[in-house]
Design a protein around this nucleic acid. Structure first.
Lengths: 148, 148
DNA sequence: TTAGCTGCAAAAGGTTTGCAAATTA
DNA sequence: TAATTTGCAAACCTTTTGCAGCTAA
């Protein structure tokens, strides 16, 4: 079934006038196989395990192409680092500022907030693009250190 | 009145065992005079207008010291860029992904969300540290471009 | 006097870009 | 064939760091 999704994505690239190359095939495969929260670096490592010549810049350019097609999204978790995932796995990220643990929460949790913001501020939030920082239960007693 | 606030902040530095220097005085003044949403670069420019020798690294180190004292906070707006503001002006930031316009909203808007997240996920959100991305009313019709 | 700051230069970390060669459709 | 991608190297941007000299308390 992953194979079908993979072909569908590659076909989207072609339909957009793009080419399907070894590097792109490998990246799409890596995205489909990935756990959540993969960085560009993680993806590069996965791709390079099978295709050592694929350069990081190709990873970034392909991710950019896929993002323009709406296939993937990236989210900033802290500092400069971003994570990438398929758009259909959309959710929000809560990141513990102490231990870095990432909690995924459903989008609907933001529905009320989104409604209020839309009516009061004429602003349509799309809050997936940044993580929400806070403290997980386990760290609630410990002092904060890393945040970004 | 700004002068009083300035002295109070400088005194906090002293109380912490720190020194009050020309660079630090100038930076605190710049923070107090600043509009919202100043970057480290903006602050450096303001400080350097009066004190050309003050180096960017000093700006960062002083901002860091002030942040450890709880006097300022920084928020990530996109890409690597962060903005700084005084802690007592705490609020959330909605950033339009199309035009970059920043809307400030009160913290209380997040109260319900925070309550839900705490009870359902045992996670205490502190959502000021990242901006919320979306689309402002004016750009609602236009296609998205810049996001970060 | 001495702990704490400073400017400088250099590096780090993640991402982007110019280019000529290679490849896809 | 013509347009698109690629690898490489170098650049970019913001932030951090090591260090020796300077300075506030």
């Amino acid at each position: 079934m992953t194979a079908v999704r993979r072909e569908r994505i590659l076909e989207q690239l072609r339909a957009d006038g793009g080419r399907v190359t070894t590097a792109r095939r490998a990246l799409v495969t890596a995205l489909l196989d990935a756990d959540e929260h993969v960085t560009a670096d993680d993806l590069a490592a996965t791709v390079q395990a099978a295709h050592p010549d694929v350069h990081r810049s190709t990873i970034y350019r392909t991710l950019d192409a896929l993002e323009r097609l709406g296939v993937v999204e990236h989210v900033h978790l802290g500092h400069g680092r971003a994570i990438y995932h398929l758009s259909d796995e959309a959710h929000h990220h809560l990141v513990c500022e102490t231990c870095g643990f990432v909690v995924e929460v459903p989008e609907q949790l933001f529905d009320d907030l989104a409604t209020q913001v839309r009516s009061q501020y004429d602003f349509a939030i799309h809050p997936r693009h940044f993580a929400i920082i806070g403290r997980c239960g386990g760290c609630a007693a410990a002092p904060a250190t890393a945040s970004g």
